[in-house]
Design a protein around this nucleic acid. Structure first.
Lengths: 160, 160
DNA sequence: CGATATTGAATAGTATGCTGATCATCAGTA
DNA sequence: TACTGATGATCAGCATACTATTCAATATCG
């Protein structure tokens, strides 16, 4: 029987586990208290101001029900606000606060450092090839998870 | 600003997300109710009968506190039993039940199918290269997570 | 216009995963 | 043997992630 720790599923989980640990370490060292999802959500709101939660979920490939809690915590930390969407009273228009913008700018170097740290065992060429292969595998299987990646509408702001 | 969805951290999470979804789908189709961790733990107990929980955690690179709950559920499902370890009264010697062995044998084809499905977008050569690169990156960063992979002692059974 | 389907959001419930702490037991040593 | 440190296991607490459901509001079609 083949060693289970060499199977794709195990490697996928392990790589993600390391990525999260490295992210936490770098971010905490820099004095910030943001998780990987929280950072991803915050960055997405910065890119697409006024987007609703379902669009946000699709833009970063998270489940909608997970995003509800993530936004809760970002709001609680004062980094994001839920505004009324005049076009659709069901939807929340997400906007960054000044504190949110400041956090996002400040945390970027740590995030970049984490991205490098999780690939520290690879040469630059290997790292590039790994990213290419992961992207290809992920693209092909995008629809297989409940939370596929969905491009955010180009002109999100206009809809808010 | 670079697209965050091309960063290693995002790709790591996304690949793992897909791996879990595919695992669940295949396993459920075959009529089994086991999560990825539960399968990994069950398989490890099968390979190293009599191992304690801390050794199990190290063998599959999970946190010890997580394994407590996983073993709880495996015991509840009647697939594993916690026996007294005569040499160390703190430790539980984990043993598979007959039902556990049966489940493990029956689930294997689904697990293998899932491993293939999550790489369906890659050629055989690409899949092999992806695995090699992930293994290399993971090995280099093994100690960076709280739950590094630890080889189980060769003669576990003798210690029980 | 009205019935139906769809969609944004939230909730309940379960299972990971982690940090940090506690407790019992074991191992080594002065 | 008493002390000290390490180790196995668990627990409390928090934050993902998922399934399934519910509710309100919107869209669509006859």
């Amino acid at each position: 029987m083949k060693d289970p720790t060499t199977k794709p599923g195990h490697l996928a989980r392990r790589f993600q586990q390391i990525a999260v640990a490295v992210f936490h370490a770098e971010v905490e060292d820099a004095g910030y208290d943001l998780t990987p999802v929280q950072y991803a959500a915050l960055a997405a709101v910065g890119t697409h101001p006024g987007m609703d939660q379902a669009t946000l979920a699709g833009a970063i490939a998270y489940d909608r029900t997970t995003i509800t809690g993530v936004v809760d915590r970002l709001v609680q930390k004062g980094l994001v606000v839920r505004k009324q969407n005049s076009r659709d009273r069901r939807a929340h228009a997400l906007e960054m606060t000044e504190a949110g913008r400041k956090s996002l700018r400040g945390i970027e170097p740590s995030v970049e450092a984490a991205q490098r740290a999780m690939l520290c065992g690879l040469t630059a060429a290997e790292a590039k090839e790994l990213m290419r292969l992961m992207r290809k595998a992920i693209d092909a299987a995008n629809e297989l998870s409940r939370a596929p990646l969905r491009e955010a509408p180009v002109a999100m702001a206009k809809k808010a």
